[in-house]
């Protein structure tokens, strides 16, 4: 049977930063071949194929919230595998090896995490699950 791929619309121009990515133009329609939880999606936009940021795409049919898991305010324990310094004021700065709680796994790869009293976005690419529940 043919494989029906999800179609998404590009919501903002994106210039690729490595050769495995593709440039996106606002309004382009792309088909998604693979969705990584780190927020990079493998797309095709004939004749181009490559990785694109999920944060620049919106689904053609229905809100993407339906695909997204609900927040888990109890938190799921993860360890940071790489340090990251916040670039925006809603992000968290964390060192490598810190244990944090993931409370919302967003499709764009920037999960909402909690460390003590602080909450903010952090790249899921730099997180590893500990397998423990808080």
């Amino acid at each position: 049977a043919p494989i029906i791929l999800d179609s998404y619309r590009v919501i903002a121009d994106y210039r690729k930063t490595s050769k495995y990515e593709i440039d996106l133009c606002t309004g382009d329609l792309v088909e998604i071949v693979e969705k990584k939880p780190n927020g990079w999606w493998f797309c095709q936009c004939e004749p181009k194929r490559g990785w694109a940021p999920a944060s620049y795409l919106e689904p053609l049919d229905g809100p993407e919230e339906s695909e997204e898991a609900d927040p888990d305010y109890a938190g799921e324990l993860y360890i940071t595998t790489k340090a990251y310094s916040a670039a925006l004021d809603d992000e968290l700065t964390l060192e490598e090896g810190e244990t944090i709680e993931v409370i919302h796994k967003l499709l764009d790869g920037w999960w909402v995490v909690r460390k003590g009293e602080e909450t903010g976005h952090f790249p899921s690419m730099f997180l590893n699950r500990t397998g423990e529940k808080k």
Binding site: F42, P53, S55
Partner: peptide, 22 residues
């Protein structure tokens, strides 16, 4: 391989999308 995803975090959503979600 072409299927190797980028090793850096993807960009945050454009500013207007972040506002819409907030």
């Amino acid at each position: 391989s072409i299927n190797r995803p980028p090793q850096n975090p993807p960009p945050r959503p454009p500013a207007e999308m972040r506002r819409k979600r907030a």
